[in-house]
Design a protein around this nucleic acid. Sequence first.
DNA 1: ATGTTCCGTAACAAGATGTGTTACATAACC
DNA 2: GGTTATGTAACACATCTTGTTACGGAACAT
Lengths: 152, 152
Amino acid sequence: MRHDSRLSRMLHVLIHMDRHDGSATSEVIARMLNTNPVVVRRTMAGLREQGYVHSVKGHGGGWTLSRPLEQISLLDIHRALGSPEVFAIGLAIDHPTCLVEQSVNAALQDAFAEAEAILISRFGNVTIADVARDFDDRFQRSTEKPGPGSCH
Amino acid sequence: MRHDSRLSRMLHVLIHMDRHDGSATSEVIARMLNTNPVVVRRTMAGLREQGYVHSVKGHGGGWTLSRPLEQISLLDIHRALGSPEVFAIGLAIDHPTCLVEQSVNAALQDAFAEAEAILISRFGNVTIADVARDFDDRFQRSTEKPGPGSCH
DNA sequence: ATGTTCCGTAACAAGATGTGTTACATAACC
DNA sequence: GGTTATGTAACACATCTTGTTACGGAACAT
């Protein structure tokens, strides 16, 4: 696969869970995301550990939100997923003895650090509720009768 | 491997080439970078196509710079390498029919676009000569007698 | 109690990509 | 023609995300 899509998937599913009464099973979520129930459990495990969702075993069980979307930022989810590497480009080696390579590393790291700081700051300032609100706008524009609906 | 280190490697070798009279063979460059001559040719091919370096076959041949480092930015090299994907994080799917996922994509793409714009802008504003100058500073601090030297 | 429905997790396959390596063709210079 | 280079195809390898199978454990239904 080309890149890590777990953040995208988790935001997607959390909004659906918010707009859906009761709990959702890994099976149902997997169909939403066009993937496998095991992948769902694996990915949501981090969110559960951080207290953003709750899982219940057995009949009638499944996944539920543990707190309102207003209280969860994109950064929270990014971190719950283990703060995966942001960049696909990186240094050849981390601590080179070559002074030339040290300068190259410094130049690149500066640039990466600046870009990452922007991204992380942005993630921290956007809640999932903000994204859900944007969905409401799109939904309203796409239908005559606005309301809390979804595409699944 | 974890990530794309071609940019880092190319900056490294271009500075060495600048501080080294005559041409350098793929063999010599490969030893600098702790890699293989074929990898060097493969990676430098893009730089040659864009006119940053020149290669000569046969006895006495090798690689030479086609223009001063002042005229090559980090962005130039990034593009010469085919503008590889900057981020290791991405969207689940590109053009979803699901309105929720469309909102998620929009939020993430906004954030990524902003961060990438910063990174690209930074790359565009730094020439390899700037990096080489930083090397000169480090070299001077590391010895009594400053001068155009390298670690290889 | 037993079966059904869930999650939890280990184990392994698949696909993609950067990299390493071998092999061979081609070109330039001795 | 032989030597020294690059150019490039072909394939192996490592790593990582994702997909899949398998099985264990917990909760609820009957």
